Computed example of a mutant assay.
Amino acid sequence: MKKFLSALFSLCLVFALVACGSSGGGEASGGESEETFLSIGTGGTGGAWYAIMSAAGAALNSDLNLDVQATGGSIENMKLVTNQSADLGFASPDTAYFAYEGGREFDNANPDLRVVMAGNMMYEYIIVRADSDIHEMEDINGKTVSIGAPGSATDIVGNEVLSSLGVEPAETINLAHSEAATALQEGTVDVMMALSGVPFTAATELSTVEDVRFIPLNQNEIDTVVENNQYWSGGELPAETYEGQNQPIPGINVGSLVIADESASEDDIYNLLNTLLVENHDEWEKGHNLASDFTIEMMETYVENGVVLLPFHPGAEKFFEEQGVTLNK
């Protein structure tokens, strides 16, 4: 009987040691750190945010991973972060502000939203077929316009540009970038409006299969739009960005921010920033040229220009202050 109890005790001890060795301390067996997965809401698969963050995921170290989610854009992303269905989300600065304070598209404020980093500058594209009779903004009156996915930054900015300039299309249709490009090519819409990075996938693919033109805004039109929207600025689409586009195209630029809930791990956010903006930034740029806009200097510019109206996440605050950036509190 004693031998049996002794054997039973030894067996229990072995199981206890195995159990202790396989849990706790944030480490996997063998003493290696557990992998961290962060999900991020971006935009449509034909847009810049999705492509940029897919490249970011490839540039991360093996113990830090990004789950890149295709979404309807800014508004959906802020709702996903608010509902904790995504850890991170892209948004234009104005959408992030209203998600934080409440108003416009958001019935309820979310005071727990926090800034993680500044992103690329986006350009408001206004694209028509080369054989179109549309040459300036007033020619869009009475036409059919694709205005972007519902609730996307494209939807918000496109409608605001049209409204500010008193342009009244016969119809606006909510289509994602890739769908809008197909509709323009097939002639079911007259105009494709899209807010995205430079370049962006849908426009690149469209310009290789269809002769298109990009409609400029004149200086008075730019001034009118910017006067009504303090978060935006005048800009231009550089010449030779797309097939057949030989001249720069004046228009509207809109910034972008990556947002998280305050409850996101301080260490995870710090490590994400340190990896992407310092340790592996060159690798990220190799994956997508617009990663060059995601820098410590860009964050500093956003702060200096008063574009960032939300508090910073503690992990981001720690990182940027270590890099010498003075943040608004």
Score class of each variant (00 low, 15 high):
residue 40 I to A: 05
residue 88 L to K: 02
residue 96 A to I: 02
residue 21 G to N: 10
residue 40 I to M: 09
residue 50 Y to H: 10
residue 91 A to W: 03
residue 56 A to V: 10
residue 70 A to T: 05
residue 21 G to I: 02
residue 70 A to Y: 01
residue 67 D to N: 13
residue 40 I to T: 08
residue 60 L to T: 09
residue 98 F to L: 01
residue 60 L to V: 11
residue 88 L to T: 09
residue 67 D to P: 01
residue 63 D to M: 06
residue 60 L to S: 08
residue 40 I to D: 02
residue 98 F to P: 00
residue 48 A to C: 08
residue 50 Y to L: 06
residue 35 E to F: 00
residue 91 A to G: 09
residue 86 A to F: 04
residue 32 E to A: 14
residue 50 Y to V: 05
residue 38 L to E: 04
residue 62 S to P: 07
residue 35 E to W: 03
residue 99 A to I: 00
residue 74 S to M: 06
residue 44 G to Y: 02
residue 97 Y to T: 00
residue 76 E to W: 01
residue 89 G to P: 03
residue 90 F to H: 06
residue 67 D to E: 12
residue 52 I to K: 08
residue 96 A to D: 00
residue 18 V to M: 08
residue 20 C to S: 13
residue 69 Q to L: 15
residue 66 L to H: 08
residue 60 L to P: 03
residue 22 S to F: 15
residue 49 W to Q: 15
residue 60 L to Q: 07
residue 43 G to H: 13
residue 84 Q to D: 13
residue 79 K to Q: 15
residue 90 F to D: 11
residue 96 A to Q: 01
residue 56 A to F: 15
residue 69 Q to C: 08
residue 84 Q to T: 11
residue 49 W to I: 14
residue 72 G to Y: 14
residue 26 G to R: 09
residue 96 A to G: 00
residue 88 L to Q: 06
residue 17 L to G: 04
residue 93 P to S: 03
residue 40 I to E: 10
residue 93 P to W: 02
residue 52 I to G: 11
residue 83 N to C: 09
residue 72 G to M: 14
residue 33 S to I: 10
residue 42 T to R: 08
residue 41 G to A: 14
residue 52 I to D: 07
residue 71 T to E: 06
residue 24 G to W: 09
residue 84 Q to Y: 07
residue 63 D to T: 07
residue 84 Q to C: 02
residue 24 G to C: 10
residue 22 S to R: 15
residue 90 F to L: 11
residue 20 C to P: 04
residue 57 G to W: 10
residue 59 A to Y: 12
residue 16 A to T: 14
residue 79 K to T: 13
residue 81 V to W: 00
residue 49 W to E: 15
residue 21 G to D: 14
residue 95 T to I: 14
residue 82 T to Y: 00
residue 42 T to M: 09
residue 39 S to P: 04
residue 80 L to Q: 10
residue 64 L to R: 02
residue 23 S to C: 11
residue 88 L to R: 08
residue 83 N to D: 15
residue 85 S to V: 14
residue 63 D to R: 11
residue 70 A to F: 00
residue 94 D to I: 02
residue 91 A to H: 05
residue 31 G to P: 03
residue 68 V to T: 08
residue 62 S to G: 08
residue 54 S to H: 14
residue 59 A to H: 13
residue 88 L to V: 05
